[in-house]
C-alpha cells in the first residue's frame, strides 16, 4: 500500500519519491546529453553574414539587368581584377529589387542598405526610398566574355539567403524559403556541390529568368548544362529552365555567344 501514488494527496510515498528523484536526475542528464549530441552533430554553418540593423551608405552605378546590381568602383584598382565590385541588390523580405531600381539603370546613385556577404559574394538589401541620383560619371559598361559550355552539378539557391540572410540558406530544409524568395524576384544562384563555384542563372538570351521558372528544382541535387559567361567579377550561367529535369537534369545547349557588350 505504501507505494501507491495518489496525485491529489499532498505527498508521494517516500519510496516512490526517492525513485522519481532518480528518474528526474536521469532525465536531466539525458536532456543535456541529447542537446550536446544534436548540437555537435549538426552540419557546419557557413561563414556568411547579414548585417541586420546596420545600415550603410553605398555609391555606385545601378545595372538593372539581368538582375539589379550596384557597380562600385574599386579605389586605385589595377591589374586583372574587375574595375568594379558588383553588389547584387534586393529588397527587404523575400523580394527582388526590380521595382526599387526601376528608372536608375546606368545611373550613378547613393543607396542605403544592409550588407550581406559570403566568400566573396556580396549583396545589399536596399532600404526602400533610399536611392538618390548623383551628378557624377557612371561606371563603364562591363564587357561580357563567353567561357563556353559547361555541365555542373550542385544546387539552385536563392542568392539572398545563401549569401547570408539565412544560415543555412540551402538544402532541403530551406527549400520552401528559396522557392518563395525566387518567386519574389531574388536572383537565382547555382552553387556547385563542392561549394566553390557560384553562377547567377539567366535564360539563354542572358536575361533574368522568370520568377517561378525554377521553383520545382530548387534545393535539390541537380546537374545542369549551360553556357557560361563572365561579366566583370560575376559569372552567369545561361540555362533553358523549361528543359530542366530532376536528378539526371539535362538542358538544351544554348547557342554559342560571341563576345558582346551590353
Amino acid at each position: 500500500m505504501n507505494d501507491f501514488y495518489i496525485g491529489y494527496l499532498p505527498k508521494a510515498p517516500e519510496g516512490l519519491a526517492r525513485f522519481l528523484r532518480r528518474v528526474i536526475a536521469a532525465l536531466g542528464v539525458l536532456a543535456i546529453s541529447i542537446a550536446l549530441l544534436l548540437v555537435m552533430k549538426q552540419m557546419r554553418f557557413a561563414n556568411s553574414i547579414f548585417e541586420y540593423g546596420k545600415v550603410r551608405g553605398f555609391e555606385g552605378t545601378i545595372a538593372t539587368a539581368p538582375y539589379p546590381s550596384l557597380l562600385v568602383e574599386r579605389p586605385g584598382m589595377a591589374g586583372p581584377q574587375s574595375k568594379y565590385s558588383r553588389y547584387l541588390l534586393v529588397a527587404p523580405g523575400k523580394h527582388g529589387a526590380d521595382e526599387l531600381v526601376a528608372g536608375f539603370d546606368g545611373k550613378k546613385v547613393r543607396v542605403q542598405g544592409q550588407l550581406i556577404y559570403r566568400e566573396g559574394g556580396t549583396m545589399v538589401e536596399i532600404t526602400p526610398g533610399s536611392i538618390t541620383p548623383l551628378d557624377t560619371v557612371p561606371a563603364d559598361r562591363e564587357s561580357t566574355r563567353d567561357l563556353g559550355a559547361v555541365t555542373v552539378t550542385g544546387e539552385i539557391v536563392d542568392s539572398k539567403c545563401y549569401l547570408g540572410v539565412m544560415n543555412p540558406g540551402q538544402g532541403k530544409v530551406h527549400r520552401d524559403c528559396a522557392a518563395r524568395c525566387l518567386s519574389g524576384g531574388v536572383p537565382p544562384l547555382f552553387v556547385t556541390s563542392n561549394g566553390v563555384d557560384q553562377f547567377l542563372l539567366v535564360d539563354p538570351e542572358g536575361h533574368a529568368l522568370g520568377h517561378d521558372a525554377l521553383r520545382e528544382f530548387v534545393a535539390e541535387p541537380i546537374t545542369i548544362h549551360g553556357e557560361l559567361l563572365q561579366r566583370g567579377e560575376s559569372r552567369l550561367l545561361m540555362i533553358n529552365a523549361s528543359a530542366l529535369t530532376h536528378m539526371a537534369g539535362r538542358i538544351q545547349k544554348a547557342p554559342p555567344l560571341a563576345e558582346r557588350h551590353e
Binding site: G93, K94, H95, D176
Partner: peptide, 16 residues
C-alpha cells in the same frame, strides 16, 4: 521560411 514573401505564409506552406 514563408513570411515577408509574395503570398500568404499559410498558402506558401503548401505551394512553395
Amino acid at each position: 521560411f514563408h513570411a515577408l514573401g509574395n503570398v500568404n505564409p499559410l498558402v506558401s506552406l503548401f505551394v512553395s
